[in-house]
């Protein structure tokens, strides 16, 4: 019964695959809860620093920070691409990378050069193969994002902006909508146009700056951009775990239906073999 043995070993291997996907699903589900919580914890900081930045723009400071001044000609832009480190999470990275690729193509047509800051292995690999100019990168963020890891790569982009090597900075990441739904999104970080727009205000007041406006505002702006990036990374991790959980659940379900089908085939062949054996015996007995 060669066919039966073959099918049996196939069932076994699909079952083993299913065990793995089931385990990954459960691991992702457990991590997802924590990742979502972390994402929520990151929100107040981003909100508060956004509020401070908005207050600041309403004030009438003697010092205008370069981050809020938009430039007339854009020759070179920077883009921070946030992706996951690992795969097996459905179309999450693919969608985010497609969005950035479209943007890169647009810029390519307008003869705008691009510097890439890659956060996450998948985006880095993709940008490498694309032959983009990678200005900075960080991989291996893990399940818990740490500000410490992000400061460096973001600083590279901010320095480039300050030295006018790039004229705008964008951020691409996956936005968390729900466990089932994630959406790639592109956001302009620099110049801070949103803040400038809210500038018209009747009140005339200003902060007391200690020690001086320049250094305090500098610190504030850098932290603001970092906070936005951190939030993006935290959100991306929540997306990753949810997407992985959904993808692995689908894989487990698929494996189950494959196993069911294979079992049916196996039982049919076994039954056929038995029937044949019996009919042979009967035929033999009748002949005697």
């Amino acid at each position: 019964m060669a066919a039966g043995k073959e099918i049996r070993s196939k069932i076994k291997s699909v079952e083993n695959t299913r065990k793995i996907t089931r385990a990954m699903e459960m691991v992702a589900a457990a991590k997802m809860r924590k990742a979502q919580e972390r994402m929520r914890h990151a929100r107040p900081y981003a909100e508060k620093i956004g509020r401070v930045a908005a207050h600041f723009s309403q004030a009438h400071p003697e010092y205008r920070h370069p981050f809020v001044v938009s430039r007339e000609t854009v020759k070179r832009v920077g883009i921070i691409v946030v992706t996951t480190d690992k795969g097996l999470c459905g179309g999450l990275n693919t969608n985010a990378l497609r969005l950035s690729l479209n943007k890169l193509k647009d810029w390519g047509e307008q003869k705008i050069e691009v510097d890439v800051c890659a956060i996450g292995n998948k985006g880095l690999g993709f940008m490498q193969r694309l032959g983009s100019n990678i200005a900075s990168q960080v991989i291996g963020i893990g399940d818990t994002p740490h500000m410490e890891r992000l400061i460096g790569p973001v600083q590279v982009m901010l320095d480039a902006y300050k030295e006018a090597r790039i004229d705008a900075l964008y951020l691409v990441y996956s936005r968390f909508i729900s466990t089932m739904k994630q959406e790639p999104i592109i956001k302009q970080l620099l110049p801070l146009s949103a803040i400038e727009a809210s500038e018209r205000n009747e009140q005339h007041w200003d902060y007391i700056y200690e020690p001086d406006a320049r250094s305090v505002v500098d610190g504030l702006m850098v932290r603001y951009i970092e906070a936005l990036t951190y939030q993006a990374v935290a959100e991306n991790i929540a997306c990753e775990q949810s997407a992985r959980m959904v993808a692995m659940k689908a894989a487990s379900d698929n494996a189950k239906s494959v196993i069911d089908e294979l079992k049916l085939v196996y039982n049919k062949t076994r039954q056929a073999a038995i029937t044949q054996e019996i009919s042979e015996i009967v035929a033999g007995a009748a002949a005697v």
Binding site: C117, A135, G152, Q155, V156
Partner: peptide, 14 residues
């Protein structure tokens, strides 16, 4: 130092 490290990594990747 962090920025330099990130940059060095990127150059390595390039």
């Amino acid at each position: 130092a962090r920025a330099t490290e990130a940059k060095a990594n990127a150059e390595e990747a390039m």
